[in-house]
Design a binder for these strands. Structure first.
Lengths: 344, 344
DNA sequence: GGCATTGTTTACACCGATGGAAGTCACCCA
DNA sequence: TGGGTGACTTCCATCGGTGTAAACAATGCC
């Protein structure tokens, strides 16, 4: 395969000039640039990225650590991050963590080996007491979600409390008073489940309604559809009356809808259902699902932007590192068929 | 950050000995190995992967070019490939092609730049007349699916004809005789749509049933749910009687079920529905979806294995390149609620 | 015309590991 | 004791680019 030296010889210039042309250095005479580009073309030359990375110390590859792409939320998030990265000429190395602690610890070690410039990490298994593991990693890290907070790291996440409160209010506005929650986690005290629960509770309290613990649907495994159906079944089996459901993600909501419909309950007439995430499924479920759009695209773009800035800061000694940011993307309630009209 | 030379100095050995220890070369005295490992530990040394890749010419990174991870089929496929790759210590660089020709051409150029050792490619936009683009790429390529065939390339795919025939037979066995097809493509003469259609037609012909063109639901865009609903609507609007549906993937099937249910048709009583792919959605749709499991995990593992073998062959001049293979993974019909019992 | 300035190109060291060959050493056998 | 053998270690070139500094050319200004 042709090297830059071959191109240089072919074009009758130095290797460095070829390098300059290819890396967009502005001070190259047009005729020279053309000669080089013709030579590149004639030889079918492609730059050797590994040499470039090795020498420049910058790979242009962003690591993305997520639990599992098969879960639509993460698949769609990955698509957004891939497209945000690509719009800046970056590539993405995906590191699936499988919801395991070891998987997440392994993902954190990857960038130290130099192949990726920085990491976008959506933790699911590490807990708050592991936050110190995120200090002094030696590379830029952007955290997604609320599973884990560290004052030394950049965060990009959504407005969980506002979202859950808006979802609950939507059902309350329609006169519903027996609103179940699907997706409660025992283990967690600060993650998105707690924040979403806090939003739910705030909405109820604002109207002077007590939380009925029989309405809390627990799901200590991943938020898959099957667990949504199970948690919904447990709530219904308790005998409590249910006329609304706030599920902590769309998969849980769709599982819950399945369980409700199996038991002959009509959505939204008998029970209104709201999910979280606005995954594509929610537009085609039966009925279509009202859901909280967490601003996934915004999250992806902001995360990539922050990472790029940090990478630049590390390379440029004159730059002053700015303080870690906490960015909350805008959320939006998307009303579909699974919730009653507000007056109903 | 520490380099191998630092470790060597610290341990009082040569750089190459450190390299030998770290890459598992067997002829190293235990005491030497220990000294080296202690030095590695004390310095917190991590090998610089970019230098290693650069020098060795092998990155241990596999490229995966798929249209879009947000589509559950590809998200789940990517998970399987990531896990197959990881089980061999390989990493995966995902190159989303967005169902576009340019995206796919760009993906084909990526490995020439040296960052990935080979490519697993699931084409969706390139057509058979582009097959020559796959010759002499200069790196190992494994193709998934039937969009594109080339005698010079390894293929791993599923038993499309058998799958469609089994799906159709399931409905025929239940006495259905007006079976719609969802997902027909005008543009294509040899891709999976045509193969699946061929299986459908074979099943009908084996029972002496004529294909009724009004039952063919066309979908010239991606096989998303929305298009399934649209195609189903078009078939129903033609006024033809429908008592069964074979959809060319699960997303189309779920979209079709949505349209059927919206029009008051009961599944499976009035219409039996079968999909393709066995994505997770199909286990939680209402009703749950009978579908053809294409053997995704097997496809992923075989594809990674073939790629590894090809990479090894390229590096070892004594190895003789074996002929390109065409591997068909086993398919399996997964019966769920959307189809009637065979006697019904 | 001389000199400073800006623009364009080049020479060369260097990034950090690995491959291959060569060197050293201990040990065994005749 | 000399030579051979295998185990272990080192030396040195090398992968293919990029950064730095310096050479060289063109332009502008007084």
């Amino acid at each position: 395969m042709a090297t830059m030296a071959d191109v240089a010889r072919h074009a009758g210039v130095s290797v460095k000039t070829v390098s300059n042309v290819l890396s967009g250095y502005p001070h190259v005479r047009d005729t020279t640039r053309d000669r080089v580009l013709v030579a590149v073309d004639e030889l079918g030359y492609e730059i050797n990225v590994t040499a470039k990375i090795f020498r420049s110390g910058r790979s242009g590859v962003v690591g993305l650590a997520v639990p599992e792409l098969g879960q639509p939320y993460f698949g769609e998030l990955a698509d957004e991050i891939l497209s945000a990265a690509r719009s800046h000429g970056l590539q993405v190395l995906i590191e699936p963590t499988g919801f395991t602690r070891e998987g997440e610890l392994a993902a954190l070690r990857v960038p130290r080996r130099g192949l990726v410039d920085g990491l976008i990490f959506s933790p699911a298994a590490l807990v708050q007491s592991d936050a110190h593991l995120l200090d002094d990693l030696g590379y830029p890290l952007v955290l997604l979600g609320e599973q884990l907070f560290s004052p030394s790291v950049d965060h990009v996440t959504m407005r969980n409390i506002d979202g859950a409160r808006a979802a609950t209010d939507l059902l309350l506005d329609a006169g519903r008073r027996h609103i179940a929650v699907i997706g409660m986690l025992h283990a967690e005290t600060a993650g998105s489940a707690s924040l979403r629960y806090a939003g739910y509770r705030q909405a109820l309290e604002a109207r002077g309604i007590q939380v009925d613990t029989r309405l809390l649907g627990w799901s200590d495994e991943a938020w898959h559809r099957a667990n949504g159906a199970r948690a919904m079944a447990a709530v219904l089996d308790s005998g409590v009356r249910v006329d609304g459901v706030v599920a902590f993600n769309d998969a849980l909501a769709i599982g819950a809808m399945y369980e409700l419909q199996t038991r002959g309950l009509a959505i939204p007439q008998d029970v209104g259902v709201v999910g979280f995430d606005d995954i594509e499924d929610s537009r085609y479920s039966v009925p279509t699902l009202t859901t909280v759009d967490p601003g996934r695209r915004e999250i992806a773009h902001v995360a990539v932007d922050i990472l790029r800035r940090r990478v630049r800061e590390r390379l440029d000694p004159s730059a002053v590192d700015s303080a870690p940011v906490l960015y909350l993307a805008g959320m939006r309630l998307v009303e579909r068929e699974s919730t009653p009209r507000r007056d109903g």
